[in-house]
Design a protein around this nucleic acid. Structure first.
Lengths: 225, 225
DNA sequence: GGAGCGTCTTCTGTATACAAACAACGACGA
DNA sequence: TCGTCGTTGTTTGTATACAGAAGACGCTCC
């Protein structure tokens, strides 16, 4: 694998998993030394990150990790609803029935999988990613795919701000099952409606989590101030 | 301005204006020599173009200009309808009334501007770009803007395949006026409907142009074959 | 004491040299 | 005659050196 690819993936993971917080200055010399490569492949990695919007060029100070706050999450979901509904409608037009029927069953039985242990949530997120991939493939639209990919990058970043709990994941599994079922039945209207419902609930959950988080922060920080 | 920026803009223009056709191999040495720069800034330019989708890495032979045919235009418009309608709805939620009222009037009087001479169509396209920019600003959604920008790059490329005629531009002006008016009135539903109508008509026109073009090509090429 | 200017340091942007990989072409053997 | 292997040439990927620019710091003058 190319050094620039390794640098890109390493930096991308560091940013998405909040090891590099917003505002962090990514000096070329510093980062290339940290990753054990020279500046040339590192610059290519930074270019790709900047194109994705994970980093932004700072006028006189290289590139910095871009800001992503829960404040921006509504805007993110406005676009996500638009694209995911389009993808669901396109997928429902030419679905691979067997694939989506299987996904429906797996989501229906996922509730037990979620409850088993907290560590297994990783498997659930992979199942969600599989559904996304199946929808992408069925939609068969490279322009849509490109837009979705960038959006999901930002989403995976904000998702870390609010950990899902078991109750939400269980509800989420039922919503995903409904989406998969609608597509398997080639019912575009229902697929769009299911997607809207799911994303609405996801956003509401995240906004509620933000409210709780803010309240907690306020309680913790005011005594110190 | 940086050499990499100049290279990016030069190559981008060359691709969009079809001076570099799809499938063209962009060798690093060759292109850097042509643009009078070294390979390093050229590689950065190619990275940006690849991220945009204008070029694609060829497994063993560098990057090539990506294919864009009228066949793919339906897929392009599926995404465009989705994003433009979202943008129109968001803009209608917080419109700068004065701006959109002015744009409405300019589109209403644009029909005469279109007829005056063929060269002035450039001004009309700039007016359309102004409306797009105004909607972008009113929508105030960086994620939407990012997705739109990439989509418009591809659109400007396929638009060259079918030159608009005066009749279509006149109808287009009326449709744009309707969109601007709807947003000025803060009527989100109407703004979405107007946008859908406009994009539907634009797509129909392009598809009809493709049919004509294919027919013409068939007539011209069959005698030679 | 504050503001402005100059110098110094450090960073990015660019060029170029080198190495590794891939493809094409030719020669040899079956 | 066809297939395979080796060689060669071109290409990309990487490292490094150099130049230019921008910011920081300190000094001096008002």
């Amino acid at each position: 694998m190319r050094a620039s690819d390794r640098a890109y993936q390493a930096l991308r993971a560091d940013i998405i998993e909040w090891r590099l917080g917003p505002g962090t200055v990514l000096g070329e010399v510093e980062q290339s030394a940290r990753l054990g490569i020279s500046r040339t492949p590192l610059r290519e990695a930074l270019s790709r990150l900047t194109a994705e919007g994970l980093t932004a060029p700072q006028p006189g100070r290289g590139v910095i990790v871009s800001e992503v706050t829960l404040e921006k999450i509504t805007g993110l979901f406005d676009v996500r609803i638009s694209l995911d509904c389009t993808a669901a409608a396109l997928a429902a037009a030419h679905p691979d029935q067997r694939t989506f029927q299987q996904l429906t069953r797996r989501f229906e039985s996922a509730s037990s999988l979620i409850r088993e242990s907290d560590g297994c949530q990783h498997e659930y997120y992979e199942l969600v990613a599989e559904l996304d991939a199946a929808i992408d493939e069925a939609a068969a639209n490279p322009y849509l795919l490109q837009a979705q990919r960038q959006l999901r990058t930002h989403l995976s970043r904000v998702r870390r701000l609010a950990q899902d709990d078991v109750a939400r994941l269980t509800a989420s599994a039922a919503e995903h099952a409904q989406i998969a079922r609608s597509i398997a039945q080639a019912n575009a209207d229902l697929a769009v409606a299911s997607t809207k419902v799911h994303l609405h609930n996801s956003l509401q959950y995240l906004l509620a989590a933000r409210a709780n988080s803010n309240a907690r922060i306020t309680r913790e920080e005011v005594p110190n101030g």
